[in-house]
Simulated assay, not measured.
Amino acid sequence: MNKLDTSYDETLRVHTLRELNILDTAPEDRFDRLTRLAKRMFNVPIALVSLIDSDRQWFKSSIGLPVSQTARSVSFCGHAILQNEAFVVPDASLDPRFATNPLVLGEPHIRFYAGQPLKLGNGIVLGTLCIIDSVPRSFSDEDREALRDLAKIVENELIAIHMAVEDELTGLPNRRGFLHQAQKTISLCYRLGKPAALIFFDLTRFKQINDQYGHDEGDRALKTFGRLLDNLTRESDTSARLAGDEFVLLMNDASAEAAKECVARLEKGVRDYNEHSGKPYDIRFNEGIVELDLQTDHSVQLLLKLADAMMYQQKRKRMD
């Protein structure tokens, strides 16, 4: 088999997919309806909504295939996400890229494959809507158009999920998206005995920016702070805008000391921005840090409450 090309921004693609919080979720009829329709329309035994993770393809909807995932290294969809249009293999047994693929040599004995890339509004490809047959077949321009139309409906469902967990202004996860992802991270930390630290941020005098310079300028300040915060976020961390001028960062496998170092880097980034922005105001923030107690079962909501309280303590000290 030929090695898959991942020369595009794979880190961003996988990060975007995982922020959807859709991987390993239960089947949903809104996706199953579309794969059932694709199966009937094209008279194929298998139709899938396949999402391509870093090392696997996971099926949000699987009609005719009795597994929920396969290795990405043997996936046809891993090739399809590199295309702008449908990726079609008329006979996999005659295609040097797939002739020795275990999914061709063994079950489900793939011969025909057609996969339409699934994109978010920002153009990032998350996976495919694909159809599979165990016999070779052709695929007309009309067939391609029909598959593209069905894939567009799947994309709309993915975009709806994306918008439900993303803050529209900053592009960071919103409160709902953060709570979902952070609970997974904390559960993993408990299971592996790894530390974690949560930092709660509150912008200082943000209301004055809105009142004196207008809400458009306030929005720019929020987007700037969100960008500066996100630039410090490792792939394993989760940053978010909770509401208004409140932000949060959950650092996986990190102590309170590591969180303080992160805050120091953010302070420097904010100072540099203030010095060179030319804005008539400065962006400033207060923060509260809480380290995960591995001996006590804490929910994300409780950690947020504790970090919020720590932030207010610091805020009062700075006002004294």
Rank of each mutant, 00 (worst) to 15 (best):
K3W: 08
K3E: 11
L4Y: 05
S7T: 15
E10S: 04
H15T: 12
T16G: 07
D24C: 06
D29V: 13
R30K: 11
L34Y: 06
F42L: 04
I52S: 00
S54E: 15
D55S: 13
Q57M: 07
W58R: 13
W58F: 05
F59C: 01
K60I: 11
S61D: 08
S61W: 03
S62R: 03
I63A: 07
G64C: 02
Q69Y: 06
S73K: 14
F76K: 01
F76N: 02
G78H: 02
H79M: 03
L82Q: 14
N84M: 02
F87K: 07
V89K: 01
A92G: 06
A92C: 07
L94W: 00
P96E: 14
F98W: 05
F98C: 00
A99S: 14
V104D: 14
L105I: 13
G106P: 00
I110S: 06
F112R: 12
L120M: 10
T128D: 09
L129R: 07
L129G: 07
D133K: 08
P136A: 03
R137Q: 11
F139K: 09
E142I: 11
A146N: 07
R148E: 09
R148S: 13
D149V: 12
L150S: 04
A151D: 06
K152W: 01
E155A: 12
L158R: 08
L158K: 04
I159Q: 15
A160D: 02
I161N: 11
H162E: 15
M163C: 08
V165H: 12
E168M: 07
L169A: 06
P173N: 08
N174R: 02
R176K: 13
R176G: 14
F178C: 02
T185Y: 07
I186V: 14
I186N: 08
S187W: 00
L188H: 13
C189N: 11
Y190I: 04
Y190C: 01
K194W: 01
A197M: 04
L198W: 00
I199P: 05
F200S: 09
L203K: 07
T204N: 15
K207V: 09
I209Y: 02
I209G: 03
N210T: 03
D211I: 06
G214P: 11
E217H: 07
E217L: 08
A221N: 03
F225P: 04
L229V: 09
T233D: 02
R234C: 03
R234Q: 15
R234V: 05
E235K: 13
S236Q: 15
T238P: 02
G244E: 08
E246H: 12
E246L: 05
A254V: 10
A258W: 00
E261F: 09
V263R: 04
E267L: 08
G269M: 09
R271K: 11
D272Q: 13
D272G: 00
H276G: 05
Y281F: 15
R284V: 00
E287L: 01
I289K: 08
H298S: 14
V300F: 03
Q301A: 14
L302R: 14
L303Q: 12
K305E: 15
A309G: 08
Q314D: 13
Q314Y: 03
K315Q: 02
R318H: 15
